[in-house]
Write a protein that binds this DNA or RNA. Sequence first.
DNA 1: CTGTTAGCGCTTTCAT
DNA 2: ATGAAAGCGCTAACAG
Lengths: 356, 356
Amino acid sequence: MTVTLADVAARARVSPATVSRVLNGNYPVAAATRERVLKAVDELDYVLNATASSLAAATSDLVGILVNDIADPFFGIMAGAAQGAICESASGRAGGEKLAVVCNTGGSAERELTYLTLLQRQRAAAVVLTGGALEDPGHIAAVAAKLARLAEAGSRIVLCGRPALPGDASVAALAFDNRSGARRLTEHLLALGHRRIGYIAGPADRTTTRHRLEGHREAMAAAGLAGDAEGQERATLHGPYDRRCGYDAALELLRRDPELTAIVAANDTIALGACAALRDQGLRVPDDVSVAGFDDLPFSVDAVPGLTTVRLPLYEAGARAGRLAMGTEEPPPGGVATIAAELMVRGSTAGPRARP
Amino acid sequence: MTVTLADVAARARVSPATVSRVLNGNYPVAAATRERVLKAVDELDYVLNATASSLAAATSDLVGILVNDIADPFFGIMAGAAQGAICESASGRAGGEKLAVVCNTGGSAERELTYLTLLQRQRAAAVVLTGGALEDPGHIAAVAAKLARLAEAGSRIVLCGRPALPGDASVAALAFDNRSGARRLTEHLLALGHRRIGYIAGPADRTTTRHRLEGHREAMAAAGLAGDAEGQERATLHGPYDRRCGYDAALELLRRDPELTAIVAANDTIALGACAALRDQGLRVPDDVSVAGFDDLPFSVDAVPGLTTVRLPLYEAGARAGRLAMGTEEPPPGGVATIAAELMVRGSTAGPRARP
DNA sequence: CTGTTAGCGCTTTCAT
DNA sequence: ATGAAAGCGCTAACAG
């Protein structure tokens, strides 16, 4: 029924070993023989059985890219760039093709672990983990253990937009400088004269969320606006990284402090949701309330007014992660590289003005 | 070095077959024995070798989901929904886990074929192709042939947001009603009184692009505004599905016809780029020019003004495609289901007004 | 319910 | 440069 390498060998009048060698292109084969084999492959419409190859060679051409939310361009851009870099690195000689695939954890710890196990089962050549990590201690330990096991078995591990594993310099990490980016963003608002600033954070248990919030509070503290713990809590709301969260949180922030003059969101999507809520309340951005986001996703520049935010080089980071996964690029010294963030000031922020 | 099933068997004092049976949970095993095996698995930290399993069983747990652009939420939403449905269907008994992965073709015919081959090599359990197809005749034939081969080898094939394969009812297809959605959208503009309407289409060689454009022209023709071929060409611009295309095309459309009162874009992203261009020209939306999009992506409702567009049930379609891929849901009669589109009228469209 | 026995289709020494 | 042969780690009849 299904055509095997042996069939090709028979038709080309060579041994299976020879067919394997021309297909993998990693061994000298006479040009005439190669032609004959290729012709047989073509005539029989033969396709290599990757499971058999992997088993025999104890290698795999699968590369997994884990993302928290595939519907979010933040991840889409990184994943796309990584996939592109991997295909490019791989497309040299025959048989070099890598199957770069992205796995959507949906932010679930359980699914992250499941995917890691599935990838481990496949003896994946590499796995790239993108975006913020969950901070549950049990989960952190479980992931670290899995990654160690994976690395042991020969998979290359790369972290992209995620802090390095504590105490494991063998795993390359490209970490975004979320804290500093967030600090500079809030400093910008403070410099404009804002004092009553609300903060809409992401899910409470993510590194990205925590680092950005810490950067914000650093700036607030430096301006003497740290306030007490209770005050901080009142000015901070947590929720998923989506527009709905931004919308609802903005309303709640306004309810808690009607004198608010600025809202900082943990990402652009939340920020745009917040803008919508303000508009629906009859408030103007930035005249009545300034709003800022984070990430500088492609649509943020087209918002009305343009969204002040912090730019992360998502594409470049993703591509670099892909090359690291392929071993095409040297890992950074110490295994960790910090990726700088850039403040983008646009129309959504301006000086505060007393509301009528 | 690496732990195998035989090691587990030895430690649990059973045969390899028994270990396989408890791990796959598809065969009765005494509770006591199972416990013993599970304990050994745990102690040895054993992980099944998927390549060996697949080879021996001639099945695979890989499911591929092809997308044209992973950074575009249009695809992200469908892919995420499909992945979710697949994981859900699979998470019954042990060993049922499917590895649902998304592959980004970047809209390249070559990479689409490469991914299809790679998935064929892996003997993928199913493959889902999402979004518009390339219309190059050679490519269509190549894809159809590959899919036939894949299906022959036992992979389930599902098309999601892509028209059915001509003459192949064995492949389930969920086709969006792009043509009718586009027609109704333009009819809405015509009903408002617009007569000079520019159209920004997507890449010229995609089914989605063509169907939406055809719907638009149907409506125009029905209103007696078909014009000659040259006139149609002048009012239509092609380009990628991104904001930049929308921005540039809007300027060009305006240059060609300064009296334009409305612009219809082939998707929301293009539409928002067009809005930005109009704003930069000092024109107001919808006062000076009305703008409409397609897809109703999550951010479109928050645009200022809210974007009039055509809603596609991306999540529902993706989830259904996932179930079809798993065989959890009956294929639609005839193999094809048409997914209706819904007109969403918002603030970006209004009656035309003479510009000063 | 459990063990025995053949392979699954390919790669890879080791010869020649 | 090519062939022969021995597995890679697992599953699936078939017995018992």
